[in-house]
C-alpha cells in the first residue's frame, strides 16, 4: 500500500512537472517578460536601441544595419551610417551621447542599410583633414564604385559617397587615441566588404558578413562567394580575442554584427561553423549529382533553419547562393 501510494505520488509529481500546458503557460509568460523589456528599451530611443559596449563605444541597433559609435577627444567615429530613413533618429541619439562632431564614417559595404545615412550624418560632421563641413567617409573602393555608378539603385548624391576610398587590404587611421583599422575581406558578402577594428576599444564591426538575424546573404551578382564569406569570418576570429584565461571574469573583444545582437568571438565561431557545415552539406550533395531543387529538398541547412532561417525565403536564398558559388567556382 505504502509502495503503491508512493508510486502514485511520484506519478502525480512527474505529470505536474511535465504537463505540456503548464510548460507553455510558463513559456508564454517568459516570452512576454522578454518582449516587454526589449520594447521598453526601444521606446526610449524612438525605435532605436543604444547599447553601451565600452566606456567609449556604443552600438546603435534598429537603424537599418548596426552602427558602431566611438567617442573620444577628437569627436565621433562611426562604423556604418544606418539607413537613410533612420538618419535623423541616429543624429538625435548621437546628440544625447556627445556634442562633439562626427569626424569619420567607415562603411563596411555598400548596402542601403549601411550607407543610406551617409549623407545626413556626413553633413552633420566636420572633416579632420580637409576642414570641410562634411565628415570623411572611408570605404573599400568597390563601395565608391557601386554608390557612384550611373545606374546605382538607390542613387546617392556625391556628398554621400566615400571621399576616402582605399584599395589596399588594410587602411588604418589613428583617432580618439586609438588605432582604427579597416580590413578588406575580398569576395565575401559582396566584393566591397571590410571589417573595422577599434584597437583600444577592442571592438570589431563586421557589416553583413555576419548577421545574427539570418543566414548570410552571399550576393553573387556583387562579387560575393561562399569561400570568401568563410575567409572573412575567419579574419574576424583572427582579429578578436576570447576572454582567456579568466573566462568569466572579463569579456573578450566585442563584435558588432551587421544585424542582430552584440557578440563576442564565440558567436563568430558559431556562425563560421554554421556556414562551413552548410557549405559541406551542400558540397556533398553536389558530389552526389543532386540538382539545386533536390538539394533544397534535402534541407542541408536544417540544423540552423529555426535560428537563422525564420525570415521567409532566407534559407532557400542561402542554399541557392552556396550552390551557385560552389558550382561556379568549380568551372
Amino acid at each position: 500500500m505504502a509502495g503503491a501510494a508512493k508510486e502514485q505520488v511520484g506519478k502525480t509529481v512527474k505529470r505536474n512537472f511535465t504537463n505540456p500546458m503548464a510548460g507553455w503557460v510558463l513559456a508564454a509568460s517568459l516570452a512576454m517578460c522578454g518582449a516587454f523589456s526589449a520594447r521598453a528599451a526601444e521606446l526610449d530611443s524612438g525605435g532605436l536601441e543604444v547599447i553601451k559596449v565600452r566606456p567609449d563605444f556604443y552600438m546603435i541597433a534598429g537603424a537599418g544595419g548596426n552602427i558602431g559609435v566611438n567617442i573620444g577627444s577628437d569627436g565621433i567615429v562611426l562604423a556604418n551610417a544606418g539607413s537613410a530613413a533612420a538618419a535623423d533618429q541616429v543624429l538625435a541619439e548621437l546628440k544625447k551621447l556627445t556634442d562633439l562632431p562626427i569626424r569619420m564614417i567607415f562603411n563596411t559595404e555598400a548596402g542601403p542599410d549601411f550607407v543610406g545615412g551617409n549623407l545626413k550624418l556626413a553633413r552633420a560632421g566636420l572633416a579632420v583633414r580637409t576642414g570641410s563641413n562634411l565628415a570623411e567617409i572611408i570605404a573599400f573602393d568597390a563601395v565608391l564604385s557601386r554608390m557612384s555608378a550611373r545606374n546605382a539603385n538607390p542613387s546617392y548624391p556625391g556628398d554621400a559617397w566615400p571621399n576616402d576610398a582605399f584599395l589596399a587590404n588594410r587602411h588604418a587611421v589613428r583617432m580618439n587615441d586609438q588605432g582604427i583599422e579597416a580590413w578588406h575581406v575580398p569576395a565575401a558578402h559582396t566584393d566591397g566588404d571590410s571589417v573595422v577594428m577599434f584597437r583600444k576599444s577592442d571592438v570589431v564591426v563586421t557589416g553583413d558578413i555576419m548577421n545574427m538575424d539570418r543566414f548570410p546573404v552571399i550576393d553573387l551578382d556583387k562579387g560575393g562567394t561562399i569561400e570568401g564569406e568563410i575567409e572573412a569570418l575567419n579574419k574576424v576570429i583572427e582579429l578578436t580575442i576570447a576572454p582567456i584565461p579568466y573566462i568569466y571574469k572579463d569579456v573578450g573583444t566585442y563584435v558588432v554584427p551587421g544585424h542582430g545582437r552584440l557578440c563576442e568571438q564565440m558567436e563568430v565561431v558559431d556562425y563560421r561553423d554554421m556556414v562551413v557545415i552548410v557549405r559541406d552539406n551542400i558540397e556533398d550533395l553536389i558530389k552526389q549529382g543532386k540538382t539545386l531543387d533536390q538539394i533544397k529538398a534535402a534541407h542541408p541547412a536544417l540544423a540552423y533553419e529555426t535560428r537563422f532561417g525564420t525570415e521567409p525565403g532566407a534559407t532557400d536564398a542561402f542554399i541557392e547562393s552556396v550552390y551557385k558559388s560552389l558550382t561556379t567556382t568549380k568551372k
Binding site: 517578460c33 522578454g34 523589456s37 526589449a38 521598453a40 528599451a41 526601444e42 536601441e49 547599447i51 552600438m59 541597433a61 576572454p243 573566462i247 568569466y248 569579456v251 566585442y254 542582430g260 545582437r261 552584440l262 557578440c263 563576442e264 558567436e267
Partner: peptide, 20 residues
C-alpha cells in the same frame, strides 16, 4: 558563476551581449 539579482533590476535589452 551564476549571480541571481534580487534587487528588481530588469534583464538587458534584446541586442545586449550574451556572456558565459
Amino acid at each position: 558563476p551564476m549571480t541571481i539579482w534580487m534587487d528588481g533590476r530588469p534583464h538587458p535589452p534584446k541586442d545586449a551581449p550574451h556572456d558565459q
